[in-house]
């Protein structure tokens, strides 16, 4: 219940944050919403020497439209994304996913950036940002770079973010309303045992499917997508394709769900998500 000691810094600009990260190296951790990090610190599973609180950097929680894309600041909370009119209009999938994260209090503090960088295998947002082909923008002493969602997650709780880098915004293309998120929850924690985000394009001929909770990192169900590309999305066709949702991945197993059950849910939830998305189209 009590974190170990650390020193605390509260930069007011991204540059200042980067400078602090550079100075303190791997002993430092960025504190965004804190809803992954603080519980780990209270159990002393995480004992960073320096916490760099990015909560006071102006503009990091904006949700705006830019160059035809929706731009979301790293500090945007799940609740802000859930209730954003822009998100609801231009990229409803993100709002749907945000609404399924944790509980109301967690959504009020937890941030999209914090969740993505923590890369918990049961986190919800990764399914959506994969399906959406989001771009993640990182700042470092070397300037800024963009990383495609598909290249962002490396392994369980590992991303491409380097110790001196800061994820500062996520951009997604404007997408149709034909999107759905179907999630089976770990009963105790609310994390996804299997969460599937599906987007169906305007002609309902191609689909994008992001899967979280099933494997040690979130993934695109490419076999499902390929099987449906150019096909009519009938229930039978979707069901047959969805059966490939865990193809080529090594599902996780724990006391809450075995690898076989996770793989099975990947198929069921993929089918349900695609059909739900189709129904909304």
């Amino acid at each position: 219940m009590i974190p170990a000691t650390f020193s605390y810094a509260r930069p007011t600009t991204i540059d200042e944050a980067i400078a602090l990260l550079t100075k303190h190296g791997s002993g430092a951790k960025v504190l965004a919403g804190g809803h992954s990090l603080l519980p780990a610190m209270k159990l002393r599973l995480a004992q960073p020497e320096v916490l760099i609180d990015i909560g006071r950097i102006a503009g990091l929680n904006t949700i705006a439209e830019r160059d035809g894309r929706v731009v979301i600041g790293t500090m945007a909370t799940h609740a802000e994304i859930e209730s954003s009119a822009l998100v609801a209009r231009a990229c409803p999938l993100l709002g749907q996913v945000a609404a399924r994260i944790g509980d109301a209090q967690v959504r009020n503090r937890g941030t999209i950036g914090g969740s993505l960088v923590h890369a918990d295998p049961g986190a919800d947002f990764p399914a959506a940002i994969l399906a959406l082909d989001a771009e993640l923008r990182l700042a470092s002493p070397r300037g800024s770079r963009s990383v495609k969602a598909a290249a962002f997650f490396e392994a369980m709780m590992q991303t491409v973010v380097q110790p001196d880098e800061l994820l500062f915004e996520i951009t997604v293309p404007k997408t149709a309303t034909s999107a759905a998120y179907v999630k089976s929850e770990q009963k105790a924690s609310g994390f996804a045992i299997c969460g599937v985000a599906a987007i169906v394009d305007a002609q309902a001929k191609t689909v994008a499917v992001g899967v979280t909770g099933v494997a040690s990192k979130p993934y695109r169900a490419t076999a499902v997508e390929a099987a449906l590309r150019g096909r009519a999305l009938t229930p039978d066709a979707v069901a047959a394709a969805a059966a490939l949702a865990a193809n080529g991945v090594e599902p996780l197993g724990d006391i809450h769900a075995s690898p076989e059950y996770r793989a099975h849910l990947a198929a069921v939830n993929t089918k349900r998500a695609i059909l739900k998305a189709v129904a909304q189209g």
Binding site: L45, A46, M156, M157, Q158
Partner: peptide
Amino acid sequence: VGFAGLKGK
């Protein structure tokens, strides 16, 4: 050792 977020001595 540990992961990015969860590192212990």
